[in-house]
Design a protein around this nucleic acid. Structure first.
Lengths: 340, 340
DNA sequence: CAGCTTATAGCAAACGTTTGCCAAAAACCG
DNA sequence: CGGTTTTTGGCAAACGTTTGCTATAAGCTG
């Protein structure tokens, strides 16, 4: 910067202002300074600036470590959409993994308390906390996404899991289905609770008992989507009185489940109707094409970023703590009325 | 830090050394300092440290912007594996997108020249360069992954695309196939060149002419994997003399292609054999299960990180500039001998 | 215990910016 | 043209670390 100042024949402070604080310096000197900077190939040092102003321009996204985002269909899309929105706001995206070990917790806390990041978007239900330091009172703006953590006081961007599942279940009931097979993700997980809750609500509304749904899975996380479906197919084969409709909590498990039970001679939707959650593109090309509840991940990502930047800029977050973006059912051939 | 020093009854410099430079300070005072730090909930400021030592602990991964990594099957896995390796080395991963516009190029250059990042892993064939600043001579250690950029002097970690495709083509020829359908990704792209080259090599080795392969696609990038397959199926339907074997350059396009031509009454592998590239898990659950060439993305990610950290630590990179990690063919039911 | 070596602690100067405050220059006004 | 306001530029002090150098304390040796 000193070099630029010398070349342009001005003081260092003027250069700083010309580059960062437009308006504060004469248009003419500013042009001169820009020219000098370009000529010297000068780029301001981000860390020096960050140190001085006490702010970083990095946002971290905290991903649950167990969630293998190569396999899960939604995480990559979330990353993409968040990153895109952040860049437009002049921020950069850093990835942080929150595993079950203390190491990763400490790592994230160091990032937060060490001034490295300016805000966080969290996709995990656990807030890192160790040795008295806790993400919650790091002073860092945080917004939760996918999971509702408004109880913990976090702005949360979620979809209407419960309602969407309730509606699709109701639709299946309307078609005549009475026996259901529910394919669970990690048990007790927010999504599992909400989605299963949606099933139960629909049953109750139709005057059906809770016994009309058989629960399978629940002891693996979404990382093992395909495995869950495979195991569930075995589970399904054991049942004497077969359910006629399957509700899966992710596309992956639906796909492997369908593949396996077709192999046992069952046809879809002839013998069994199937619907799943996520809305991944591949569903369209399965045989039969799978009905799926499409999560609006792009919109959710955008919304999360908007909320976060608002919080950073201290704009009053008059908005609700919980932002819901509705899922939409994509109806395909995997659903039909039961045989008789 | 001053507070910690005061509480521990030592000088600031001693605190610094105790925290960063172990060994240089007495074990006893160090314990005292650690205790004080914990009690005060002190975390060293990363930017101040970075400024002082002139180094950041952030690595950026440069992704081609057009590549929609929610859709492409391999990018998420790459991210996962790279991040995991980096964390073990004490580094953080930042995502940077390289689009076709100058904005994103400038953005990346600012990151590189502004001291924000310590090294880069690049998955794009274009090195940002604008206004005389160029990533190539930023002094930043860079390694290329997936694409061979050893010509540009970059350490490159790739798989043996050409060889793998050549081998599988040869195998198809051995089974009796003589007419091929090649499903291209972005034309001129490194992967396209290599993989198509592999096909041609196998044909030549078997004494078959280049006319025995029909090329389809090539005008969309991998982002539109499914679309490519759909269009290719239309293309396929036009052909009077149908090929008996299809070689697709990504799983996505294979999946949509298969779905569509099955709909026209063709059976796989009865009428057409199909093999694709990537090795995504979903292939196992297609009907029929798809043969695919599995890219060793995890190993490639690890290797790329190893090379990068070596370069950062100035360890002599006596190793070859080009690191090849072999793909492996996963043979499933989508391949058989042609009908007659 | 004096004289030496070695381990440990402290001082203060960087690192490259931004910014509050003041001075100088320019513009405006009567 | 003198006086007043506004614009623009410069000085120097931060921001929170690390680290070369020096001073002190501790440990050893004869």
């Amino acid at each position: 910067m000193a070099d630029v100042a010398r070349l342009a024949g001005v003081a260092i402070s003027t250069v700083s202002r010309a580059l960062a604080n437009p308006g504060r310096v004469n248009e003419k000197t500013r042009a001169k300074i820009n020219a000098a900077a370009r000529q010297l190939g000068y780029t301001p040092n981000a860390m020096a600036r960050g140190l001085r102003v006490g702010k970083s321009n990095i946002i971290m996204i905290i991903l649950p470590g167990s969630l293998y985002y190569g396999a899960s269909q939604v995480i990559p899309q979330v990353l993409q959409s968040i990153n895109k929105s952040l860049i437009q706001g002049g921020y950069n995206l850093m990835i942080a993994n929150l595993d079950r070990d203390e190491i990763s917790e400490r790592h994230i806390l160091d990032l937060a308390f060490g001034g490295s990041v300016r805000g966080a978007i969290i996709l995990s239900s656990k807030l890192p906390e160790v040795d008295g330091r806790s993400l919650a009172n790091s002073g860092l703006p945080i917004v939760s996404m996918l999971l509702d953590m408004s109880d913990a006081g976090l702005q949360s961007v979620v979809t209407n899991d419960r309602e969407a599942v309730r509606d699709v279940t109701a639709e299946l009931i309307r078609l005549g289905h009475r026996r259901f097979f529910y394919l669970a993700g990690p048990e007790g997980n927010y999504h599992d609770v909400e989605r299963y809750g949606g099933v139960l609500e629909a049953l109750e509304a139709a005057g059906l008992s809770e016994d009309s749904v058989h629960r399978s899975g629940g002891h693996l996380d979404y990382q093992h989507g395909f495995d869950i479906g495979v195991q569930a197919a075995d589970d399904f084969a054991e049942l004497t009185e077969k359910p006629t409709a399957v509700i899966a909590t992710s596309d992956d498990m639906a796909i492997s489940f369908v593949s396996r039970i077709q192999r046992t001679g069952l046809s879809i939707p002839g013998d069994v109707s199937v619907v799943s959650f996520d809305g991944s593109p591949v569903c369209e090309f399965c045989s039969p094409p799978l009905s799926t509840i499409k999560q609006p991940v792009e919109e959710m990502g955008r919304a999360a970023v908007d909320l976060l930047l608002d919080a950073i800029d201290q704009r009053q977050n008059t908005a609700a703590v919980r932002t819901v973006i509705r899922s939409s059912l994509i109806l395909r051939e995997s659903i039909a009325a039961p045989k008789n």
